[in-house]
Amino acid sequence: MRATDGKLLAVNSTGCLEVFSTPYPESSWQLPWLHSLFGNGPAVAAGVAAALRARGRDDIRVIGQAGDGGTVDIGFGTLSGMFERNDDVLFVCYDNEGYMNTGVQRSGATPPAATTANTKALGPEPGNAFGQGKNVPLIAMAHEIPYVATATVAELRDLEYKVERAMSFRGARYLHVFVPCPLGWGAASADTIKLARLVKETGMFPVFEAERGEVTEVSRIRRQVPVEDYLRPQRRYAHLFGDPGRPDSVARLQASADRNIARFGLLPEGTRDGEALRDHPRHRLQPCQQDRLVAHRARGLHEPDAAVQRRLPGRGEHPGLALRG
């Protein structure tokens, strides 16, 4: 609202955001707000933007919002269309890694090994399969739209900045916000912000900005922690730490976090990898954390994670993945 001087119009796809903000016949939205279907949010937003353009109202900005289901799965076709036409819309995805509102089903944003209502902790590969799902921020970058950014609810100032920054561009913009769901993930409500902080500090969710397909800024890790610290407080990963547990799966998740770290250059300046981190007083790992990090890596070494590598589209050769410094 502040970034647009109050001249804002919102289009919403179905999601829990609507459940708590617009229980019929009430609405907590104090701005023009439009809901159509689960899957067509980006198309409706693009239409609204076109209508405003036709009326010559370039002072009113349009924002589209959806959860990861409405963005990554059901709304993906219309989202890609909005991107390729470069419609003047900021689309925000609130990513809680599944269909939490309808009973915790898996989405294309559900991470490997996580249990949901339809990826139970059963069989040889319990939880969500490795090697599936998609990374929409990278796909958005591949459309070479003016602005793509990721953020978490743990860094509200950063989120604020990125909305303001997005509003300084015209054309299609995409903001992917990581939002833990205490209910769907089986985590304590009070840990919501902590989990959002840890997902970034493990490297599992890279926080960055990109313009026209090029990464322009990354939020570096401040105090690196092993993925285990992020996984353990969540019941959806409980099977990884039971008896006997699945240290191999934890190692694969650590390997994918390490890949993100290398790919986006997430380590603090002046350090090159976790080994160097150990000697860096500002980012010193607790001895137990070091041991676990090393242990996870050792396990990962014997088992190159081809599946995880397949999961991430783009690879290093894509121009969009050229890294800064």
């Binding site: 205490p182 912000i193 902590k194």
Partner: peptide, 8 residues
């Protein structure tokens, strides 16, 4: 009573 403000 989620306790988020206390934790943060």
């Amino acid at each position: 009573g989620c306790g988020l403000c206390v934790a943060e």
